[in-house]
Computed example of a mutant assay.
Amino acid sequence: MGKKYNIISRSNSISDTLKFDSEKYLEKLRKLNGILFDLDYVHHEMESHQQALDLWDGKLISGTRNEELKNLLNLRRASLVGHLERARLIKTSLGRKK
């Protein structure tokens, strides 16, 4: 995909922040276990997927001029939405186990 559109992956302020935040979160997660781990993890997944959708809409799709690529990004967006919805369902089911 990247080769077809001559897309080159490189670090930038957004990717650097995401990487730093992920590493910081992993440190926190390592200290949790049981239901506290599960609840925190699924909450973080919901936040991460929402953040990805915000970036997807605000940067990727809106910044793409190539219509074929824009259509592909819109198709992949549906997958992100599905992941977010599944995380919400899991959080609801975990909330009953407290």
Rank of each mutant, 00 (worst) to 15 (best):
L18T: 03
K19F: 04
F20D: 13
F20R: 10
D21C: 01
D21K: 10
D21G: 00
D21P: 00
S22K: 06
S22T: 12
E23D: 10
E23K: 13
K24N: 06
Y25I: 03
Y25W: 05
Y25V: 00
L26H: 00
L26R: 14
L26W: 07
E27D: 08
E27W: 02
L29R: 10
L29E: 04
R30S: 03
R30M: 00
K31Q: 12
L32Q: 09
N33I: 03
G34D: 07
G34T: 12
L36D: 15
L36Q: 14
F37H: 15
D38S: 13
D38A: 07
L39G: 01
L39I: 12
L39V: 06
L39A: 05
Y41T: 06
Y41A: 07
H43Q: 13
H43C: 01
H43M: 04
H44S: 06
H44A: 09
H44N: 08
E45H: 01
E45L: 13
E45I: 08
E45W: 03
E45P: 00
M46V: 15
M46D: 06
M46I: 15
S48E: 12
S48Q: 06
H49L: 10
H49Y: 13
H49M: 11
Q50F: 11
Q50H: 09
Q51E: 13
Q51P: 00
A52Y: 10
A52H: 01
L53W: 05
D54V: 14
D54P: 04
D54H: 09
D54N: 13
D54G: 03
L55P: 00
D57N: 15
G58E: 13
K59G: 02
K59C: 06
L60H: 05
I61P: 01
S62Q: 11
S62P: 00
S62K: 14
S62V: 15
G63Q: 09
T64F: 10
T64C: 11
T64M: 08
N66Y: 03
N66G: 07
N66M: 04
N66R: 14
E67R: 08
E67D: 15
E68P: 06
E68S: 11
E68F: 05
E68I: 09
E68A: 11
L69D: 05
K70W: 05
K70Y: 10
N71F: 09
N71G: 06
